[in-house]
């Protein structure tokens, strides 16, 4: 691996997993229908949790509730034992880093400028960039393997490159919780591999990493647990091989899917013939 295992992942290392984020009976609705329907879920430090389900199942909404961007209609989210609603944006941002699927900018920021923005939770009023900010940003860019893009304009990059920049920005945030919305959607095979390994590496350092996936095989291979959503509700949550069985997948996705057992306890989801 090109990236080092020091610094970014070492700081949060700890032996005992503990509850980092806890959702209690969350409800959220955009119109009348519940987008997230009474979801309770506990997420521990050191785990990689994959959130799966069909389009419109409520995955992104749940992520936005967990990160505090959306406020639930009822229920609450606890962040390291404290209610999210009682914390300031800045306090949350120092603990939760969020990687959106994409960002559109009306203005031309360079990749470095975008990544340094990740230092916002630690910056004072109208503060300028410190040497520490630049060092952390540099390290984050190296981890995401985008050092060669540093001076380029974000808007001129491909979707996949932009996704890696957003990842680097979140890494520069140095938060113990990393939440990613479809982190592999624009990535080629090499970068999917790199993204998954990077996420896994950060969980070993003691971080909680939660992400949504459409590619169930990718999720099954790397995630410690998978939470499967359907129509806003949490259908199942547990080890990939337990959650992803053919009958459940057919009822959730509405098409017959084949689930093959692989040696080593892994599984493989296939389309029907």
């Amino acid at each position: 691996m090109a990236y080092s295992l020091t610094g970014m992942i070492g700081s949060a290392a700890q032996s005992e997993p503990r509850l980092a984020l806890a959702a209690r009976d969350l409800v959220f609705a955009y119109d009348r229908q519940n987008a997230v329907d009474h979801v309770s879920l506990g997420l521990e430090t050191g785990e990689l949790l994959g959130l799966a389900g069909p389009n419109g199942a409520g995955k992104s909404t749940l992520l936005n509730l967990l990160s505090g961007f959306l406020a639930p209609l009822s229920g609450e989210v606890m962040l390291f034992g404290r209610p999210l609603a009682a914390l300031t944006r800045r306090e949350i941002a120092a603990r939760i880093a969020f990687v959106p699927q994409k960002t559109e900018s009306a203005f031309s920021f360079t990749v470095t400028e975008m990544v340094v923005m990740g230092r916002q939770p630690y910056a004072g009023l109208g503060a300028f960039d410190t040497a520490e900010d630049m060092r952390v940003a540099q390290e984050a860019m190296e981890q995401a393997e985008i050092g060669n893009l540093a001076g380029k304009f974000f808007n001129n990059l491909s979707g996949g490159e932009q996704q890696l920049v957003l990842l680097a920005r979140a890494l520069a945030q140095r938060a113990p919780i990393l939440i990613l919305d479809e982190p592999t959607s624009f990535l080629d095979l090499r970068h999917q591999w790199q993204m998954m390994n990077l996420m896994k590496m950060h969980t070993r350092g003691g971080r909680l990493v939660a992400a949504t996936f459409h590619d169930l095989n990718l999720a099954a291979r790397w995630c410690d647990r998978i939470a499967l959503m359907h129509n806003g509700a949490l259908v199942a949550c547990g080890k990939p091989a337990e959650v992803l069985n053919a009958r459940r997948l057919e009822s959730v996705y509405g098409i017959p899917l084949r689930v093959d057992a692989l040696p080593g306890g892994n599984i493989r989801v296939e389309f029907p013939e």
């Binding site: 990160s67 300031t88 944006r89 941002a93 959106p100 960002t103």
Partner: peptide
């Protein structure tokens, strides 16, 4: 403006980004 210049950078991207990076 000087006190909000960093926030203006983030607000010029999108609300989610600004919020997730600690801006009210």
């Amino acid at each position: 403006v000087a006190c909000h210049a960093r926030a203006m950078n983030l607000l010029s991207l999108d609300d989610g980004t600004a919020t997730h990076l600690g801006v009210n």
